[in-house]
Nucleic acid binder design. Structure first.
Lengths: 154, 154
DNA sequence: GATGAAATCCGAGTCAC
DNA sequence: GTGACTCGGATTTCATC
């Protein structure tokens, strides 16, 4: 059963979001509870799904994925089957970081990371416009990343 | 000095990206090196900036930030000062997860997380259109998150 | 139900090689 | 790069409230 989070749980979540490598002992000191209690509470945050995962944030430039592109997609038809087919296909593309169904001028917005513009153009021509049901795409090259993946505020 | 990554380093990066809680001992087994070697290599990945940080991924719905919104922004003027002022102001808004300067019909794209639509409307009226130099904004409410923050493929 | 103290166990970090 | 050793933290037990 998922019960409420108290002030200590929230503080732990914020601390772990900003530094997932905190040891249990360190975290316990920061939130002023015993190591045993801290351990139990952390377990609960995982078990009850408050923390989905802990992830090392890899620097994209360092692994040759320095180009970020936003792509707006419009589908041919707005049927549930059409959406479903498109979504299944997109989920397999590992260069797609985000894919969101939106209300407005586009059906979907994609956030994509690739090596460079040439790489994107190749992928666009071979994989994006080839996605099922795509009528048109609009590409927005990112010229500067001002804020990238900021921690969640809560 | 930043030298190249070999096959083992890359494998470690991928493993840590998918599970930042892996202990050094576990990681060492997975990449088939001794714990001491694994430890030194991991240190290097941090020191040389391959891993920016390790983050607990908090489930937005669980902390009352279930609404995701993409916002396209157009500025009044396209001067460096105008961009700089806008960017400084945006960086202070803790509900902004991403902010990217793009080429195309908009100047910036923002990715925003809030409690709900009512919350967004309040924020839009009081904080977004009030950002320095904003001529217009276009809001795309996210109706379904198909892929959210997928791990980087490299 | 929750907690913290203590006891055990295991891994991190450091050493020599 | 490996293996060993030491020390500190992770995890469990248990008494207590």
């Amino acid at each position: 059963m998922t019960s409420e989070l108290d002030r200590i749980d929230l503080k732990m979540l914020r601390l772990l979001q900003n530094n997932g490598r905190l040891s249990n002992a360190e975290l316990a000191k920061l939130v002023d509870v015993s190591a045993a209690t801290c351990h139990r509470r952390t377990q609960r945050l995982f078990e009850e799904g408050y923390i989905k995962s802990v992830r090392a944030m890899v620097e994209p430039q360092k692994v040759d994925r320095g180009a970020l592109v936003m792509v707006g997609v419009v589908l041919d038809r707005s049927t549930p089957e059409s959406f479903g087919t498109f979504e299944k296909a997109v989920a397999k593309l590992n260069f797609v970081l985000d894919c969101n169904l939106v209300a407005g001028d586009f059906d979907y917005f994609l956030k994509i990371r690739v090596r460079d513009m040439a790489d994107f153009n190749r992928i666009h021509g071979t994989q994006l416009i080839a996605l099922p049901g795509v009528r048109q795409t609009r590409t927005f090259f990112v010229m500067k990343e001002v804020v990238d993946n900021a921690p969640l505020n809560f």
